[in-house]
Design a protein around this nucleic acid. Sequence first.
DNA 1: CCACCGATTGCT
DNA 2: GCAATCGGTGGT
Length: 220
Amino acid sequence: MVGAMETPGRKPAPVSAPPLPGSFYARATDEVARDLIGRVLVHDAPEGLTAGRIVETEAYFGPGDPASHAHRGPTPRSSIMFGHPGIAYVYFTYGMYHLLNAVTEDHGKAGAVLIRALAPVQGQELMRARHVAWRAARNRTPPAHTRDTDLADGPGKLTIAMGIDLAQNGQDLTGEKLFITRGEPVADLAVAVSPRIGIRQGTEHELRFFVKGDPHVSKG
DNA sequence: CCACCGATTGCT
DNA sequence: GCAATCGGTGGT
């Protein structure tokens, strides 16, 4: 159990639900990306528990996908994408941000889903504190008014809010520290698709999924 | 060994 | 429009 309060007669909070099983991730990457919309990412860290509903994802494949780290085959960094499904792939980019993925497909076939944005559902104060600490470490002033829509509306921002860095790379997402619960699946009618953003090649396919009109989705 | 550049963010 | 900031990657 992850310590969420439960009131008798009411359904348990999303964060107290069990992690999705490994079989959830052992599927086609775009299918998993779509299915992750509405699920709840939970991080049970020493300093506190944070959780957010996934509102934006992107699918990355293996060789044949020019935008993927696995495009040129396994390297020291990308080999994890060829590994076991349901494992966290965290990498460092632009000299300052960590980005979180969930490894997909069967072992031996590359695939990962980039988690791009969350709607905070628990631990917002801790999320704010982490953002302030992150900015202070870089001698930047803290944001004046940080609303819930500003805490995790982007792949680099959500890892700051959730306290995710290279220490979580390779962690089992079906485990008890960093995991994803069932949440509330979102109907097709409420899910939009678009080309992936922030990349130069590989924009010809609709591999980005997000909740229509949700203010927690990244600005792009 | 070196040069290039990025699955981003926030300020000008 | 562009700077920040640094490790992965691929070519010498």
